[in-house]
């Protein structure tokens, strides 16, 4: 399974999980984390398509992936610049879900993550048509 298929499959399963148990805070945290990692893997997929090897990176990988998405696609006008703050926003939500246990994670937070992921996935699909 490649990263694109993994991301799409994960989101489908997370939507199922949200429907079944989205009223539980731990499940909401898990879903937010998995949505972020789906976007992260999607980014790595794009970077591999242009010859980079993120699997060999060892430090600051999450930041570096976003920085390279900017360098490879936004700075070259191939991707909408708004994808960068969107990726950071998703990462911030994942950090919140993973580390900040006293912060409430609402259903609205989960739904915003699904919305942000959909925007990013659509932009990635559009880009893939150009670079393949």
């Amino acid at each position: 399974m490649d990263e694109l298929s993994f991301a799409e499959e994960t989101i489908d399963r997370m939507k199922d999980l949200y429907g079944l148990a989205g009223n539980h805070a731990v499940v909401r945290r898990t879903i937010i984390s998995r949505i972020y990692y789906s976007a992260h893997h999607l980014s790595r997929y794009l970077l591999r398509r242009v010859g980079l090897r993120p699997e060999t990176w060892r430090r600051n990988v999450h930041q570096r992936v976003i920085d390279e998405i900017h360098r490879q696609f936004v700075a070259t006008n191939m991707m909408n610049a708004q994808m960068i703050p969107l990726l950071r926003d998703m990462r911030r939500n994942r950090i919140n879900a993973d580390y900040q246990l006293r912060t409430t994670i609402s259903e609205g937070d989960v739904e915003d993550m699904f919305d942000m992921f959909d925007v990013y996935l659509n932009e990635c699909r559009r880009l893939l048509e150009v670079i393949t």
Partner: peptide
């Protein structure tokens, strides 16, 4: 939201800060 966040990130990056902003 993305457009406004870009306007916040740009000066911060120019000043050498690495910040994560959510909403």
């Amino acid at each position: 939201l993305g457009a406004k966040f870009l306007n916040i990130y740009q000066p911060l990056e120019e000043e050498g800060y690495n910040v994560l902003i959510g909403h």
